[in-house]
Design a protein around this nucleic acid. Structure first.
Length: 573
DNA sequence: GCCGTTTTCGGCCCGACTGTTTTCAGTCG
């Protein structure tokens, strides 16, 4: 499914960029971008939706024209409109648009006046001093182009959420706020809990913006200052992360919090609702004419447009506003709904802590159960266990369980799915386990069809319970292997299997879109840490955050269940 | 190009900051 939806979204995004350079009406450009976002965040494949109802104008932001264009892409794999644009606008300008400070108007001017058609042209003209001669350009712009033109790729780098959290902690310390002080809030995609962030949006409520700004631009991790105004400043850190600071008065904090949390699309949708009610909404508050009627608390923004409060994780304009209006917002899962961890390693395979240490850590968390899921034999690099070792470990866990009073250690394994879809342990051993997590650790290069068949075959084994880290991606390091996840979710629903949401900060696998997809098809998700040491058990909060982005409620999640119910769910038949 | 409890045409979120300008366009979020 991903390919089709992503393909359509990418073509629309690209069309928007080219239309922008061509100088089209900006609202038309926005229509393409909105449609791209809508399609990308769909929980189901477009082709699926089409078989149910050929009219796609029921999707928000898709009208008659774009409905036709989607069908054109599905039919031909191409978009005529884009090809037509590419004849008028050089393809290389797409990349020139990525240079910070160069928007569509400036790019068009560079093309019209200096015939700049790509990054190489841009670099040459800047070096030769011709850009500063243009009307509307100057020395500073030229210098900036020369500085930034060679690091476009690092601009596109995104920072892991957990890394951003660390940086935010250092910044908070530097600015002199203690962690419990509610007056420094990290907003933006960080607050929406996106798995990676491009920048950090920091909001401070204070009267004394000058002192804070001054300290901010002297942060020790800084590479350079990008902007520095009265209430707003931006810095680039050496790590490549951009940090934007905004200082507002306490009386505006709620409105500013809503505004800076975004997403931009969500804000636009909320402000449009405001306009329909004759209100103006900005970062300072909600206004009726000149009179400010709300803005101190974030809830007031929603109340003013007649909606209940919407959690930050849902604010992507992907159906949350309609759900709010119809009073069917999900009651999102929270960390304290979690009753155990279903994927942990010990030093019996590649973990850093012993079984006893992991169990004690789980007890400290107040868990009712923890599953020990070591690797199986074919994964030699992780010192995977052979059948005899597994039997030995099972006995060890049985003995341990007799001593424990508040917590049960579940006997499990992270079973390798072999190339042919066989599981890496014989069924007579699998039968002795409480359940299994089955994962792919090899042959990532199979074709989409082969990889899908491989996993489907594994799922046919009656002892297959949870599909571990279903796409195998490592954020910023390794793309997902090619697989038809939509089909796997359907298959899991049919067979009574489950999907893991691996909470490791580099995995967060499955993503938010597929959480929604699983929920829609009635497949429950196990939020698991894949801990290789006691400190990793804390990754659970990241998994829960991702689940919230995926609209999951406690009942959609496997490990919110008590032990008895959990064991019943693991019995396939 | 989308959209409609005021609309099928005429709107479309809103403001800060920079650089290039002498009052503002372009970019960004």
């Amino acid at each position: 499914m991903e390919t089709r939806n992503t393909e359509i979204a990418d073509l629309f995004k690209k069309t928007a960029d080219f239309l922008e350079i061509a100088g089209t009406n900006p609202f038309r450009v926005r229509a393409y971008r909105n449609a791209a976002r809508t399609i990308k965040s769909l929980a189901r494949s477009i082709t699926d939706l089409l078989t149910e109802d050929p009219d796609l104008t029921r999707l928000s932001g898709i009208g008659k024209e774009l409905d036709d264009k989607i069908k054109e892409i599905i039919r031909t794999g191409k978009l005529g409109k884009l090809e037509e644009l590419e004849e008028r606008v050089p393809a290389g300008l797409h990349r020139v648009l990525k240079v910070p400070g160069l928007g569509p108007r400036k790019v068009k001017a560079l093309y019209d006046k200096l015939s700049i058609r790509n990054i190489e042209d841009l670099r040459r003209e800047a070096r030769e001093g011709r850009i500063r001669e243009l009307a509307g350009f100057g020395q500073k712009t030229e210098n900036r182009i020369l500085r930034d033109v060679d690091r476009l790729d690092s601009n596109e780098k995104r920072t892991l959420w957990i890394t951003a959290e660390n940086i935010a902690g250092s910044l908070r310390e530097h600015l002199g706020f203690d962690l419990s002080n509610r007056d420094l809030i990290v907003t933006g995609s960080f607050r929406r809990r996106k798995e990676t962030v491009r920048d950090l949006d920091v909001l401070v409520a204070s009267r004394d913006s000058k002192a804070i700004m001054e300290r901010f631009v002297n942060f020790d991790q800084i590479d350079r200052v990008l902007a520095n105004g009265h209430t707003r400043a931006s810095i680039l850190l050496r790590s490549g992360l951009q940090v934007d600071l905004r200082v507002v008065e306490l009386s505006c904090l709620g409105a500013a919090l809503h505004y800076f949390t975004g997403s931009q699309a969500h804000n636009i949708a909320i402000r449009r609702l405001g306009r329909q009610k004759g209100l103006k909404i900005n970062e300072y508050g909600v206004f009726k004419g000149d009179r400010r009627i709300a803005g101190q608390a974030e809830e007031e923004i929603f109340t003013s447009v007649g909606l209940p409060y919407i959690e930050p994780e849902l604010r992507e304009d992907s159906g949350e506003i309609q759900a709010a209006r119809e009073k069917r917002l999900p009651a999102l899962i929270a960390l304290n709904d979690i009753r155990g961890d279903l994927h942990c390693h010990t030093d019996d395979s590649d973990g850093r802590n012993s079984l006893e240490e992991m169990v004690r850590a789980a007890e400290t968390k107040g868990y009712e159960y923890i599953a020990v899921t070591n690797h199986t034999g074919s994964l030699k690099i992780a010192r995977g266990l052979k059948a005899a070792d597994v039997r030995h470990l099972i006995k060890k866990i049985d003995r341990l369980n007799q001593r424990l009073s508040h917590l049960v250690v579940l006997k499990s394994m992270e079973v390798d799915i072999l190339k042919d879809g066989e599981l890496d342990l014989p069924n007579d051993i699998l039968e002795e386990l409480d359940f299994t997590v089955c994962s792919i650790h090899s042959h990532f290069g199979l074709s989409r069809a082969e990889q899908t068949e491989r996993i489907l075959r594994a799922m046919d084994n009656p002892y297959f319970n949870i599909l571990g880290h279903p796409t195998g991606r490592l954020l910023n390091r390794r793309p997902a292997y090619r697989v038809d996840l939509d089909r796997l979710i359907t298959a899991a629903a049919e067979r009574g299997c489950f999907l893991e949401l691996n909470a490791h900060p580099e995995r967060l696998d499955i993503d938010d879109v597929h959480c929604r997809s699983a929920k829609d098809k009635g497949v429950r998700v196990a939020i698991s840490t894949d801990a290789h040491g006691i400190s990793d058990l804390d990754f659970m909060r990241l998994g829960v955050a991702q689940a919230r982005r995926g609209w999951l409620e406690p009942q959609d999640v496997l490990n919110t269940r008590g032990l008895d119910q959990l064991m019943k769910l693991f019995k396939r038949s």
